[in-house]
Amino acid sequence: MNKLEPILLLKSGQSLFGIELRYVREIVSDFPVFPLPAKLPHISHLALLRGTPYAVLNSEYFLQIEHKAMGRLVILIAQMAIFADEAVQSIPPEQLSRHENESELETSFVKQVVQYRNRIIPILDIQAILNDQPDFKFISI
């Protein structure tokens, strides 16, 4: 079983999710975001921060969180980014407990499901996302 780590708690619409704090590089509020030239299931936009492009992850694909509007914040994680409306707080592991019915919410991109003050929080599996290599079948000439 994975050891619990400090997380950054994020809010997107009405949903909460967490990212292990060691992966979080920066939280940015004023950023240019651009649509992609082709429709991809796992990347929703391109964010350009100080000249460096980042893939903005599609939270629906990775977390099943429906998020229609663009978030107000971009959270930079490893070489990627994800939208959120609010960075709630960072939480040390001792304040987190494992959710009993973890498998209910687990997907291949959710590392763990934890409980914090009676709220259930899925934690993104950043390594799994980094290793994910989707097969683009839509390209046919």
């Binding site: 990347i43 980042y54 070489q79």
Partner: peptide
């Protein structure tokens, strides 16, 4: 031009981006 790296390199058929205008790359 800035080559696409990391997750963005999975964008098929594109190799890089460039600054085009304030509204678009």
């Amino acid at each position: 031009i800035t080559p696409l790296k990391g997750k963005l390199s999975q964008l098929p058929l594109f190799s890089a981006i460039c600054n085009f205008s304030a509204q678009s790359v």
